[in-house]
Design a binder for these strands. Structure first.
Lengths: 200, 200
DNA sequence: CCATGAAAGTTAGTATCTCTTACTTAACAT
DNA sequence: ATGTTAAGTAAGAGATACTAACTTTCATGG
């Protein structure tokens, strides 16, 4: 968790530690509020050192986003372990994991999605995003007893995803009223899951 | 549309023109890719001039976001003009306007939501966001023949909003597959509107 | 066991950016 | 006319992103 400082001349672990430092700063100060220099100081190296591992600042941000997307997928998978086979609860659990991640690391979460730099998204990032989405697809397919490529499976999974994604964003950007107007999250998850999966 | 340059010593319209210049640059180069200096040059003034109108860079971004939120609300309202009274199509039209705005100005759209700077969102921004949401609330209330503060109205409106918001984001961040997997938008809007409003 | 090449640091420096200070211009109210 | 003040400018401090050129360390083959 803490950012360990280096020992000798060679750091040995700088790349990973920079990503971690940037992650921490991103959450603390927001996307505009921190610098590569600051991350370097946190890691205990000179301000030029990062450029041995990354092309430029966006390249670092991409690495942070990428690592976040992998962790999101892991969290989604993990949430399934405590759920019984083929119940709606499995899908709700995925939604909770997704929203939980956004709440815990809003800075990284936003970075994971707002990334494209000129003509579209990085291919690796897109693959990672699809891998996370595939976790949901698999559960929806299992619940509906249909194949992974079935059109209704993909449609329903996408509907569920848009809902959870939208709620996660509205939750971390507090554009909604301070709370008074916002429905209970459990109610939301159960309702939307039912309306998407039980009606069709 | 174009950024007119100033005439005399006093610009006369600098504040508005800076907001416009930043808006253009934001769409062209992304949130990290432009500077206040650049916007100043676009407007034909010195790089110090903006600070007569804005406290700092985040203050400018806030103004851009604010102006965007007002335009979004206008677009939502406008979309209703062509719809007959009390039909589901009115709600679909609002969704289309919302998604259309995001697609047309993804940079501003992201800025409108990812704004909070330390302890929450600017109060004005929050009010503007709620004003936009209120357009949807009013239509849902009318469709359901219930009051604006009815719990079911607010729940359903929020469900619809999360869906459209999530879809808008996934659309502009192209985290999904290039198109192949993405369901048709008209299908999505109609389906979700029906499942939220017809089932309950 | 040593030489050598590459990986991964460093220092120093450039161009640019944000924002401040002190000064200047012009518009307007009285 | 004149004084006040809003809204510009110029100059500069401090920080940043990134590059170039140099240095240290490690790993590896002869």
């Amino acid at each position: 968790m803490s950012v360990e400082t280096k020992t000798g001349y060679h750091h040995g672990n700088l790349r990973a530690q920079l990503v971690e430092a940037v992650r921490v700063l991103l959450e603390q100060k927001g996307p505009e509020g921190f610098s590569v220099s600051e991350a370097s100081r946190l890691a205990g190296v000179s301000t030029a050192a990062p450029y041995k591992h990354f092309k430029d600042k966006p390249d670092i941000m991409r690495a942070v986003a990428m690592e976040g997307m992998c962790r999101l997928r892991s969290a989604m998978l993990e949430s399934l372990e405590r759920q019984s086979h083929r119940s709606l609860d499995r899908i709700i659990a995925i939604g909770r994991a997704y929203i939980g991640f956004a709440r815990k690391e809003p800075g990284v979460f936003r970075m994971m999605f707002g990334q494209q730099d000129r003509d579209g998204v990085d291919a690796d990032m897109q693959a990672a995003g699809e891998a996370a989405f595939d976790v949901l697809i698999a559960e929806v397919a299992a619940y509906m007893s249909k194949g992974l490529d079935d059109l209704d499976v993909r449609r329903n999974a996408y509907l569920l995803w848009t809902f959870v994604h939208g709620h996660a964003f509205l939750e971390i950007d507090q554009t909604m009223a301070p709370d008074g107007h916002k429905p209970d999250e459990t109610y939301l998850l159960e309702t939307i899951t039912q309306r998407v999966l039980l009606v069709s």
